[in-house]
């Protein structure tokens, strides 16, 4: 029964993302994997820090009101090894980023896919789980 369950998971292709994606905390306790939002905004700061990097963006709504968001990503070393160029995130650039919204109600989330101004895309963080 248990083996069947594991085999089923493997069959679903989960094996590639199932090794702990984050070294130091659980995803589900902080972020809602069922609430993937899309934000477009101007980069105000990038923290190349551990245990996670953070992209800070200002997002303007339809009425012109600006709200500031902070999106978590993989550690800098991991991003380097997945080919996420540090130079690709510059203050003042406009990006679109998908993110799993934080469960604490704040303007934070687990960043997933960044779309750069030239249309190219790159994952900044793991798939929700």
């Amino acid at each position: 029964m248990k083996q069947g369950f594991l085999a089923a998971l493997t069959g679903l292709g989960l094996l590639l993302t199932a090794w702990p994606a984050m070294a130091h905390h659980s995803f589900a306790a902080e972020y809602d994997s069922n609430n993937l939002i899309t934000l477009t905004g101007v980069i105000t700061r990038v923290d190349w820090t551990n245990p996670h990097m953070y992209i800070h963006i200002d997002v303007k709504d339809a009425g012109g009101k600006v709200s500031s968001w902070s999106l978590e990503g993989y550690p800098p070393n991991t991003l380097k090894r997945t080919g996420f160029a540090r130079a690709s995130l510059k203050e003042g650039d406009t990006i679109t980023i998908t993110a799993y919204k934080s469960k604490d109600g704040s303007n934070t989330g687990a960043g997933r896919e960044v779309t750069f101004s030239d249309g190219s895309k790159k994952f900044a963080g793991p798939e929700g789980r």
């Binding site: 130091h24 905390h25 820090t49 245990p51 934080s102 469960k103 604490d104 704040s106 934070t108």
Partner: peptide, 21 residues
């Protein structure tokens, strides 16, 4: 390479607030 985990760790505070909510 270096991984200084304590550098910038807002996660515990977020998780605590999420748990309270």
């Amino acid at each position: 390479e270096e991984y200084e985990c304590i550098e910038n760790n807002p996660d515990p505070a977020h998780m605590k607030k999420a748990a309270e909510l």
